[in-house]
């Protein structure tokens, strides 16, 4: 094992404070290791009203949970209180966002923040604890601006004094276990209660059909009414079924084929001659190709020689 780097790492990288977190030794890997958390105040390109009380974190430990950060801030960073933590990759792994119903246009993605409360019909979660991609980021929202500022200040101080911060201290028993237990829990959650599943699917389908109706009505009205410029939008639906598109394509191909077969291609003499010429050309081309292949083979493998 290589010894720990002797020189202490820099305390600052760009505008990030480098906060060393120590990870307790494990029986399978019995040395203490240091993880570096990069931390600064949040500065998104388009700030929101919450931005001032947010802290941006890079290099989140893979096993981090909200509880972890709460404990870290409470015990080591001046007791700042956290409202919630947004993990970068949580969107992919966190639950399913079913479309909202009741007259709203269905959204595809999870970007529409305002539609959140109306979501129904999510499928049950299958993990009791998420893990995060190595090197990922998170946004920590504190209860207010002062506590966010205090946390950052405390972090800088901790780095300066070289105080040892142990990752995961004070969360024992508060978060689900990792290791085999986590996979066992996942296995259990993966097979949800069928009644729960049924109601979730039912609610989803109900919302979905309501939404489809809404959409149909919208299209119908678009078809019926000219827009402000006086045009009538051409839309899908109406009497044309959804399968129409493929059908027309099929017909088109059929037609092309028929056209092609109308005059057989060995009817005129020139056709025959051209065909022959084509064949001869193919032969030559094939020969050239083969030669190239052999040449390439020789280049690759050297001379042909029996083993």
């Amino acid at each position: 094992m290589v010894p720990m780097p002797k020189s202490r790492p820099p305390s600052q990288v760009l505008d990030f404070t480098v906060l060393p977190l120590h990870r307790p030794a494990l029986p399978s890997y019995p040395l203490k290791r240091t993880h570096y958390l990069y931390i600064r105040s949040n500065a998104p390109r388009i700030p929101t009203e919450d931005t001032p009380r947010e802290i941006f974190v890079k290099n989140v430990p893979i096993d981090a949970t909200e509880t972890h950060f709460k404990a870290l801030f409470a015990d080591n960073l001046g007791g700042a209180r956290i409202e919630n933590v947004d993990f970068e990759d949580a969107r992919v792994a966190k639950g399913i966002r079913a479309p909202a119903a009741q007259g709203k246009k269905r959204k595809r993605g999870a970007d529409d923040e305002d539609a959140k409360p109306e979501e129904v019909g999510q499928l049950p979660k299958t993990w009791d604890r998420e893990v995060h991609r190595s090197g990922s980021t998170a946004v920590i929202r504190c209860v207010d601006r002062p506590s966010a500022e205090m946390a950052l200040r405390e972090a800088r101080k901790a780095v300066k004094t070289g105080r040892e911060i142990v990752w995961g201290e004070g969360v024992e028993g508060k978060v689900p276990l990792l290791g085999k237990e986590r996979y066992a829990a996942h296995h259990k959650l993966r097979y949800p209660d069928q009644a729960v599943l049924q109601s979730s699917v039912d609610r989803f389908m109900e919302a979905f059909s309501a939404q489809e109706e809404e959409k149909a009505r919208l299209l119908a009205s678009q078809r019926a009414e000219p827009d402000e410029d006086g045009f009538i939008t051409v839309t899908r639906g109406g009497r044309t079924g959804p399968a129409r598109e493929e059908e027309t394509k099929g017909k088109e191909e059929e037609f092309k084929k028929r056209e092609k077969n109308r005059v057989k291609d060995d009817f005129y003499r020139f056709q025959v001659r051209e065909k022959k010429k084509e064949k001869a050309k193919d032969l030559v081309r094939g020969f050239e190709e083969d030669r190239r292949k052999v040449e390439e083979m020789r280049r690759r493998r050297g001379k042909v020689r029996p083993e």
């Binding site: 990870r23 399978s28 570096y36 990792l178 290791g179 085999k180």
Partner: peptide, 21 residues
């Protein structure tokens, strides 16, 4: 790359499934 810390994380993630790194 912080190799040691990553290995420690992996050991942690694997829990008792990982006997030795």
């Amino acid at each position: 790359v912080n190799r040691d810390a990553i290995l420690a994380e992996i050991a942690c993630l694997g829990g008792d499934m990982v006997r030795r790194v």
